[in-house]
C-alpha cells in the first residue's frame, strides 16, 4: 500500500526508497528497518508516528547521512544521500546531549555557521532572528545547562533555524516539555514552515500532534519497521490549537491513525 502513495510529482524533495537498516553483521545482525518507502514533497510538513523502539531515530540518522542504509536508499532531489546533506538540519531527540555545554546559547547557534563562511553581520542577523523566533533572545549569553528542558529544546531548534536549512528534520522535538510549551513549539513549527518555506519532517509518538501538524502522516509499525499506512490530513489552514483540535474531522483523522497503531501488526 505504500507504493500507492509514492507520488511521481516533480516537487518530491525527499525520497525514501526500499530503505532497510540492520545493526551488526552476520548472525548477530539486528534488523531494525525492513523496508520503508515514502516521499516528502517540497514545502510539505510530514510527521512520522510509531511506537518507541520501532526505528524512527534509526531512520532519521540514515536520512541525515550519519549512517549508511543497509539496503535501498534515501535521496534529496534525486541525489542519493551518502553523507550529511548541506541543505538539511537535524534536531536530535537528546537535545541536552546535542547542545555543547561549553558554549553559550549564542555560540551554540554560531558553531554550525562557521564553515559556511558567512559575513559576520549575516551570521549575527541569523542568530538574532532564530533566537527571536523561539523567544529566547534574553538567554543568548546563558549556557544550555542553565536553562530548563523546554528552553534547551528551543535552543536546539533555533540552532537549526539559524542554519537556514531547506529541509528540517526533528526527532521527537517536543517529547519532554510541558503541555503549554508543547503547544507553543507546535505553532512555532507551523510558523517557520510558513515563513521560511521549509520542508519539514517530524518524528513524534503523539498522534494528536502528528495530525495537528502535518499534511501527511507516515505510520510506522511492526518489528522490523514497515510503513503501515500514509494518511493524508486535510485540515484547513491556518491551524489553531483550539479550533483545529475541536473539528470533527480532526477527531476522525486521529482515530484513523490510532486504530492503525493499536491493531497488532
Amino acid at each position: 500500500m505504500a507504493e500507492a502513495n509514492v507520488s511521481s510529482d516533480a516537487t518530491v524533495r525527499l525520497r525514501v526508497d526500499g530503505l532497510a537498516k540492520s545493526y551488526g553483521t552476520g548472525d548477530k545482525a539486528k534488523v531494525v528497518i525492513e523496508d520503508l518507502t515514502f516521499t516528502v514533497n517540497a514545502g510539505e510538513m510530514v510527521c512520522i508516528v510509531g511506537p518507541s523502539g520501532v526505528g524512527k531515530t534509526t531512520l532519521l540518522k540514515c536520512l541525515a547521512g550519519l549512517q549508511p542504509a543497509t539496503r535501498g536508499q534515501a535521496s534529496i532531489d534525486g541525489r542519493t544521500i551518502s553523507g550529511p546533506p548541506p541543505e538539511m538540519a537535524l534536531v536530535f531527540q537528546d537535545y541536552n546531549r546535542s547542545l555543547m555545554p561549553w558554549l553559550t546559547v549564542r555560540k551554540n547557534l554560531m558553531l554550525p555557521l562557521r564553515h559556511l563562511r558567512l559575513p559576520a553581520a549575516e551570521a549575527k542577523e541569523r542568530c538574532d532572528s532564530a533566537l527571536e523566533a523561539v523567544g529566547l533572545s534574553h538567554a543568548e549569553h546563558q549556557y544550555p545547562w542553565q536553562l530548563s528542558g523546554g528552553m534547551q529544546q528551543r535552543v536546539a531548534i533555533a540552532r537549526a533555524l539559524a542554519y537556514r536549512p531547506e529541509i528540517l528534520i526533528m526527532d521527537e522535538p517536543f517529547a519532554s516539555v510541558d503541555a503549554q510549551t508543547r503547544f507553543d513549539l507546535e505553532d512555532l513549527c507551523l510558523k517557520i514552515r510558513q515563513d521560511f518555506g521549509m520542508t519539514i519532517l517530524v518524528v513524534t509518538h503523539d498522534i494528536d500532534e502528528a495530525v495537528y501538524l502535518s499534511d501527511r502522516v507516515v505510520v510506522l509499525g511492526s518489528k522490523p519497521a514497515k510503513v503501515l499506512k500514509i494518511v493524508d490530513v486535510d485540515l484547513p489552514a491556518p491551524r489553531d490549537q483550539i479550533t483545529t483540535r475541536s473539528l470533527p474531522e480532526f477527531a476522525r483523522q486521529r482515530t484513523d491513525v490510532l486504530s492503525l497503531i493499536k491493531r497488532p501488526a
Partner: peptide
C-alpha cells in the same frame, strides 16, 4: 566525548578537523 554531540557536529556538515578541534577537544578538556 558524547556520540550525540559528535553526530550533531557532523550533521551540520562540520569537517573532520573542525569536529576534532571544536567538539572532540573541548569534550576531552
Amino acid at each position: 566525548a558524547d556520540p550525540v554531540t559528535l553526530d550533531t557536529a557532523r550533521s551540520y556538515g562540520m569537517g573532520r578537523t573542525e569536529v576534532l578541534a571544536r567538539v572532540t577537544l573541548p569534550s576531552a578538556m
